[in-house]
Nucleic acid binder design. Structure first.
Lengths: 336, 336
DNA sequence: CTGAAAGCGCTTACAG
DNA sequence: CTGAAAGCGCTTACAG
């Protein structure tokens, strides 16, 4: 008959009764913990499979004093670039989490306001926390350290007690810059984002490192930080071009997009008159003319590893290996 | 003493014992359900406040057969525009949810793949679902209708059985277009996004409505749909300008940004030689030169209302009123 | 107005 | 190898 009765939801008790065993036994068959006869286990497992039984995660959680939830903290005021990056992280996090049957609870953090974190803690609905942004205010970080929940940070940390996962921003910045210097450019300009972000600081440092290592002086007049809108970028581009820059390193895609369109507007040819490169390779740059050289970070992977790291702390045994994160340099026409 | 012992976590039993009442009584004082003496209630409440007791939401949930979780479905492949809009929705959703002490569990949906939804359902960790994108594939929608969980849709629906919340996209498209027509433009171009999205279809329809109502013919040669990258936009701009367009309606901000930079590049003056307007007012347009006229939707509000609607279905009594969503037209220099 | 008891659906010592 | 029992921290008829 196709018209089956309303699919009933089995409990562990139902199964025990129908199979004539104790629920202890059923529980053991499912969890794999404790001794149990081969035959019994198979019988239970077969029944479970046939009736598509899924244990109630909440009940299990209560008994085990776990929730199988992980909180993901997310700043309320994310801007475009960060958010695109974050989205990929989230993909990675969710993927790993669901493999271990954890769910992700999202919590929007408003600047310095820790009330949402307190709420999470008070409600005891999560086993751990992933903090998504390095820029999380020091107040938030401080609170997290004091609070009961284990957490991992996506982004850099100099506190050895805080588990974190980060892109190699400084190394990447250095490598990209080195490549441009080795291609012969001697007057590199830098267009950077918000300096209160760690990522900005790291990439900037990488830019400096490359110069120092090759013994090439940095021209302070070509450094423009905190450029975050079309107008400011446009002005910066005029200035740097007038000042004789032969290459531009953009700290992220959005800045680079604005930079490229500004160059087009001013009829400055790339790469003929000036070269350009960016530090985060999103789809934004894909269709640019000319295609832009850039560093490609693997945000999905970053998310996966952050989640894996937290799961380890929570006592799970994730198979995924935590190998150092890497980046690629994608050389395109804009630096030829 | 400042150094208090490890903050212990009280349970309802502890409180009952310390106060010499039954836990039934404590429970009643907290929930407000059932009769309870004024004096007793106050005594309990005072104790709770003093010791900062917070009931265990998971345990309560188990007893009430609720989870106090809401799932938010989110497509894995969101692109920039949608995602920015979605972020605001999320803010609204989270805000309302946390007021009622619900949490938001995020679930990434990969196209037609319903396995994550099945997982949500099987795990019974949510009381309801908010589907974030109108474009959710028909397969996903179909599955949701059959599944046990109540859900609301953000976006349009013609199925009267599906609760949904939507922007007035068609009306907004019509109004923006009407304004441009009434300003005297007679050859309006349209730059639209992905036609498989309902929002695109609705805004397009609004564009047509305005023309019909005013008895002004639509020039098919000025309609460019599915433009989603700089190159394509740039070509479209060339064509429409050559074809004599006197105004451009962009369906979203990202398209509009690309359109504006393309116009700048081609040295076509806005608003002198051609006017332009957009349909979603994000920060993207804020710094454009000239500032761009646009429709402003309230995504945060949209999220709030979606969540409110779901909470109603779940039997809560949200105070927030569900009034029809509105939009603003922000007239700026680009259409003067 | 208040409480003892059963129950939500699991897990886990403990005993056999 | 298996099970009875207690427990996770709440709620809620039911009885008084």
């Amino acid at each position: 008959m196709m018209t089956e009765e309303e699919k009933r939801i089995y409990t562990i008790d139902d199964i025990a009764r129908e199979l004539g065993v104790s629920k202890t036994t059923v529980s053991r068959a499912i969890s794999g913990k404790g001794r149990i006869g081969q035959a019994t286990r198979e019988r239970v497992l077969a029944f479970i499979k046939e009736h598509d039984y899924r244990p109630n995660v909440v009940a299990r959680g209560l008994a085990q004093r776990k929730t199988y939830n992980i909180a993901l903290l997310m700043p309320k005021d994310y801007v475009a670039t960060e958010f695109l990056f974050f989205k990929d992280c989230m993909n990675g996090i969710c993927e790993v989490a669901s493999e271990y049957n954890y769910d992700i609870i999202i919590s929007m953090i408003d600047g310095e306001d820790i009330s949402q974190i307190q709420r999470l803690e008070a409600n005891r609905k999560v086993d751990g926390i992933i903090v998504s942004r390095a820029v999380v205010s020091s107040k938030v970080q401080k609170y997290l350290k004091e609070c009961r929940e284990p957490f991992v940070l996506i982004g850099p940390s100099d506190d050895p007690n805080i588990p974190f996962i980060d892109n190699k921003n400084q190394e990447a910045g250095k490598e990209l810059t080195s490549i441009m210097l080795m291609k012969g450019m001697r007057h590199l300009a830098l267009l950077g984002g918000n300096q209160s972000y760690n990522v900005t600081v790291s990439r900037y440092q990488g830019f400096l490192d490359a110069h120092h290592e090759l013994g090439i002086p940095v021209d302070e007049n070509l450094i423009f930080m905190n450029v975050d809108n079309q107008l400011v970028v446009s002005e910066a581009v005029s200035k740097l071009y007038a000042a004789g820059a032969d290459g531009i390193v953009c700290m992220d895609d959005v800045i680079c997009s604005m930079c490229m369109s500004s160059l087009r507007e001013k009829k400055i040819q790339v790469p003929a008159q000036i070269k350009a490169a960016s530090m985060y390779d999103s789809k934004n740059l894909e269709y640019h003319n000319p295609p832009v050289t850039s560093i490609k970070f693997d945000a999905v992977r970053l998310g996966k590893m952050a989640c894996t790291k937290l799961l380890k702390i929570l006592g799970e045994n994730p198979q995924e290996e935590i190998t150092p994160l890497n980046y690629q340099v994608v050389l395109r026409e804009s630096t030829q």
